[in-house]
Amino acid sequence: MSKADIEKKFIETIKENERVIYKVCLFYASDEFPLNDLYQEVVLNLWAAFPKFKNQSSFSTWIYRIALNTCISGMRREMRRPKGSGFSSELQNSLIEPEDMGEEIKEMYHLIHNLKTMERAVILLYLEEKSYQEIADITGLTVSNVATKLKRSKDKLRNSLN
C-alpha cells in the first residue's frame, strides 16, 4: 500500500470514528489542555500508531485506548506540542467547546472534571455502554479493578449530583 493510500485510509478511519475521539478529548479538555490541542495530539498519536495496527483488537477499542492514553498521559506531563502551534485556530473553529453546548452538557462536563483521570476514563466508557471486559481491555485494568473504580466514580458523581 502506498503512503497516499495509507493516508487516505487513515483519514477515512478518523472520519468514521471522529465522535469517539471528540468525546474522549471533551472529557479531558480543560483550560490547561485545550480541546484542540488534545485533539491534535490524539490524531498525531493515532497516525503514528496506524501502520502498527494489527487487528488484534477492534478498531474502536484501539482508538479508545490511544485516545485515552494520550489524554491521560497529557495530563500527567506537559504536552510535547507547544501550545498554540500547528493548526489550532482552524481546529478551534471546527470543535464545539462544551461551554457552547446545552446547560445539561455543561453541567455534566463540570461534574466529570471532579473525577480523577482514570475514573474519568472508566465513566466515559460506561457512558459509551462498554462492558466491564471491554473497559478492562481498553484501560488495561483488571475487570475487578474496573468494577471498583466504576462504583467509586458513580458514588462520587452521585454525591456531586446531590
Binding site: 493516508e7 472520519k15 471528540y22 490524531v43 482552524e90 481546529l91 470543535l95
Partner: peptide
Amino acid sequence: IVKENILKEVI
C-alpha cells in the same frame, strides 16, 4: 466535526 483538510494538516 473536523474537515478532511484539517485532519490532513494535523498529520
